[in-house]
């Protein structure tokens, strides 16, 4: 008799625990708040304009720029080969294959880094990897790449090297001041991305 009582109590106890816990909190958000805070604080999500320029010039195929501003802003000006995913559409199903993948490096950008950061944070919470943020956004991009400031003559050599690179990048990427899409900087068509098959429920049944 005793073992039956223990058996009943164990099951009732486990049942009480599971009844008292909110169901399945593990699914929607993959990271705890602490983990996310730590990642955001480490600033590892940022990628500098120089790195982006380098990737762009080398036409790295495993790299995709994602403009998270509104569509009309995107149409006025955008970085070469970027696609537009307005922040409001970030969770639309059509973009899931772009954002949740492990073959490409995605770089979000907006005018500053605020919107891009929001996009990064949301995708990161969903557990997606390989998404980054253009440091300083388009504003900083314009300052550094498009209109690089000549270092003063007393600067160390690295500054000059950097300046030369930026100058070169600026030329390669259409140069000069920020110009609209009229300057041959047309937003490119969506690159073709083989979307991974969405995970389906297991098949089963008799």
């Amino acid at each position: 008799m005793n073992s039956r009582v223990i058996f009943s109590l164990v099951f009732v106890g486990l049942g009480l625990i599971i009844a008292a816990t909110p169901s399945n909190t593990t699914k929607a958000y993959k990271l705890t708040a602490e983990e996310l805070l730590e990642e955001a604080y480490s600033r590892n999500q940022y990628i500098s304009p120089d790195e982006v320029a380098d990737l762009l010039i080398n036409k790295d195929p495993a790299f995709l720029l994602i403009d998270v501003r509104d569509q009309d802003e995107y149409e006025k000006y955008s970085l070469p080969n970027s696609i537009n995913i307005p922040l409001t559409n970030l969770l639309a199903e059509e973009w899931e294959a772009y954002l949740d993948q492990d073959i490409r490096l995605n770089v979000f950008y907006s005018n500053g880094s605020l919107k891009a950061n929001e996009a990064w944070m949301i995708t990161r919470q969903l557990g997606y990897e390989n998404n980054y943020v253009l440091e300083g956004g388009l504003n900083y991009w314009a300052e550094t790449i498009m209109n690089p400031e000549k270092p003063s003559s007393t600067s160390p050599n690295e500054e000059f090297a950097k300046y030369d690179f930026r100058k070169g990048a600026s030329m390669a990427l259409g140069g000069g001041a920020l110009v609209g899409s009229a300057g041959g900087n047309k937003p490119s068509a969506k690159p073709k991305i083989a979307s991974r098959p969405k995970k389906k429920r297991a098949a089963g049944g008799c």
Binding site: S23, N24, A203
Partner: peptide, 24 residues
């Protein structure tokens, strides 16, 4: 009941995604 609470606990610990298992 063993499998039922087992699945719920595994889901709670993040060991299994209940949205991916077959439901009749």
């Amino acid at each position: 009941i063993t499998a039922m609470i087992g699945l719920l606990f595994m889901s709670l610990f993040g060991w299994i995604d209940l949205d991916l298992i077959y439901i009749n």
